[in-house]
Write a protein that binds this DNA or RNA. Sequence first.
DNA 1: TTGTAGGCGTTATCAC
DNA 2: GTGATAACGCCTACAA
Lengths: 334, 334
Amino acid sequence: MKVTIKDVAKEAKVATSTVSRVLSNSEKISKDTKERVYEAIKKLNYKPNAIARSLANNKRHMLGVVLPSEAQDMISNHFFIEAMKGMSLYAQSMNYFITYAFSKEEKDEILYIEELCNSSLVDGICLLRAKEKDKTIEFLKEKKFPFVVIGRPEETENILWVDNDNFKSSFELNDKIIKRGKKKIVFIGGRPHWNVTKDRLNGYKMAHEVNGINFSKENILIGEDCCEETGYKLISNYLKKKNKFDAVFTTDDVLAIGVMKKLKEEKVEEVTVTGFNDIPLATYQTPTLSSVNIKAQELGYWAAKLLIDSLEGINNPNKHFIVDCEFIKRDSFY
Amino acid sequence: MKVTIKDVAKEAKVATSTVSRVLSNSEKISKDTKERVYEAIKKLNYKPNAIARSLANNKRHMLGVVLPSEAQDMISNHFFIEAMKGMSLYAQSMNYFITYAFSKEEKDEILYIEELCNSSLVDGICLLRAKEKDKTIEFLKEKKFPFVVIGRPEETENILWVDNDNFKSSFELNDKIIKRGKKKIVFIGGRPHWNVTKDRLNGYKMAHEVNGINFSKENILIGEDCCEETGYKLISNYLKKKNKFDAVFTTDDVLAIGVMKKLKEEKVEEVTVTGFNDIPLATYQTPTLSSVNIKAQELGYWAAKLLIDSLEGINNPNKHFIVDCEFIKRDSFY
DNA sequence: TTGTAGGCGTTATCAC
DNA sequence: GTGATAACGCCTACAA
């Protein structure tokens, strides 16, 4: 038989409300009864029922995450699991739980989120990436359901989000490459419409400006996606032009890997190549690939923090948080 | 204001119990009222409250997973996310949710599971790997809390589990290697005390027996773990003996990668190398690494199925399920 | 400081 | 078939 608050009350010879107050650490309670109640709790091994509690106080203490299953590649796997770990870390510290689900298609995603909100199973939702014209954001906004986004959304007004400073990290890395004496950096990116790509391109440009170096549009190559083949093709085309270059800055490790493959094939040596995301694969390249670690775990941690804190009425000065990246220098940084 | 079952009842001019019956698709209900109720539901846009439902019928419709955060390497990341995806797949189809958490240490893990059970937030728990003398299994067993294990546990009596048939897949692969004409296969494994390793070793031995080939203990190398360095070292030592061999069967892709690294360094060519797990890295090796895909997603799917079905009283003939592996032949299969 | 009682939104058990 | 009504386990006015 389950032991309930009533049993505890009986055992401690108090009312259920008293037990409840002890549990919630209410002020108005005498030391004496407090002790008696605690004793009873211990003796009966009483554990509060989270469900009943939720129903009574209209708080779930639970967050929902929806993982897009569309891109189940190395990078997203790595990113997702790290972000989820970060979220779990903060959630646990605040006694929150997290429920997750993979969506098969985008349509599923909204359906699932709808269900999550409607069934009132969760207090808030965490979106694992912002797309342009994100329908889920629209939906949650309109519904006034609490949520946080990992990745800066198009409209940031009044919504919680966390992200890296992609402009800054790109700027700093390009600056570093230039300061190392490289004269010509090729920019290779994917997904032209994503904020990430734009921001990193701007960082590239700014680093050139600040260092008083010209760059030509010829050196800026942007493909449609971030797969290995895209990197391979982009650099292949570039090589045909026989332009000189001594560094390749890519916006993604997988692009970088494609680039390195081609460079190796063509025996182009001692060219600095850098990527983003610092996927496990990076250390397995020859030369080992230098990359910018975007700190996925911290992104997750802060996403959960922003959301939970706002649910709990804890005042965070900001509606967003920027997680610093870390450049991991490896052998490909000539 | 939230719309509840009462509002629907009022709107449809029936009792709440009737609405409830309609919702749960009860038999005894006239078409007429059913329609009226559905209309009211639609009109008011009523969504049942999952929490209240849980409280009333003592069912959570929620599973819990605990991820060990100890080993956050490529393999586990890949395995975990795939398994979680599989679980999510079946859970969604049965209208179950899944809550997860990472444990920092083993101690945490039990604490977290305890909390999960006690707070009666979940109906069952899914353990993502079986260790020897697993304390969490002991705990759950004693508590009679429903759970399923991915990975055959030590004591299988009366507990739900899913796993690959490691003996069989090892046997089949070794048989394949032998049939291909290889005369001497080196066995390289890690974690000597794990069932997986033992089973795969037995498969290796059996394949030799069946094909009437002798194998010497000299060719069976087992290290303490499954890291790249271990594979590298084991094969290095073996090479010193100048024994002839034409294939290396490893119990783990990462071991295999270590082996291939050494073989490349020593310019040992055309030796068949195989691994297990089929991690993303496998396709990035040169030559691309042949590997046994253990179907992590299916493992997760069946784990969820076994657990949920048993919770729902759906009769599965078996208390366990074996997921077939798939050998992925790549260039390293000379 | 503590107790009483009503409510959270359902489902389940009775009657009818 | 359908309707009252009592759980489910906890919280929280309000009263004492």
